[in-house]
């Protein structure tokens, strides 16, 4: 059974430990700007929302890639970017309607969540269990799917 990241905004305090864990895992330094998961703050409402790629079935990024740099990881179901193959054309960054593929100007490539190969660092780092790695059939995933469903069709 494939697992997914379940993000529960009502548990998030906005501490950014997930961003640090993600960037440390992927970049070797604590660097929230290069985290694949982002926490957004709704100041006026007093809310926080952790947000990253839902590894959607439509895989907009994968289909938009002109050089086949994005593939489905058979173990995790994640859409992985091959840094060797990516040329940095950024078409996936405008094609992904969730805005979860981002260009990293320092590497000249794009970056996105790859579920850390099946052991997501953000999950471990979250002090409030706002980010959990659960069976994709978990009931809590329903609302994320509902969100995906209201987005676009080609």
């Amino acid at each position: 059974m494939l697992r997914s990241l379940q993000l529960e905004s009502e548990k998030c305090t906005g501490c950014l430990q997930c961003e640090m864990a993600c960037s440390y895992e992927n970049e070797g330094v604590f660097n929230p700007s290069k985290s694949r998961i982002k926490v957004f703050t709704f100041h006026e409402e007093g809310r926080f929302a952790p947000y990253t790629c839902s590894q959607c079935a439509e895989a907009w990024c994968l289909h938009a890639c002109p050089v086949d740099a994005i593939t489905i990881n058979p173990g995790t179901g994640a859409k992985d970017v091959s840094e060797d193959v990516c040329v940095g054309c950024k078409v996936c960054t405008i094609a992904c309607p969730f805005g979860t593929v981002n260009y990293n100007a320092d590497s000249g490539k794009v970056i996105k969540c790859d579920l850390c190969g099946g052991d997501p660092a953000c999950v471990e780092a979250c002090p409030t269990e706002a980010i959990t790695y659960v069976d994709a059939s978990n009931a809590g995933m329903d609302r994320m799917r509902a969100h995906a469903a209201q987005t676009i069709k080609s």
């Binding site: 982002k38 950024k90 960054t93 405008i94 309607p97 805005g99 981002n102």
Partner: peptide, 10 residues
Amino acid sequence: MTQHVGVLRG
């Protein structure tokens, strides 16, 4: 702008 630009499409 390089971050989350895809949400414009969304």
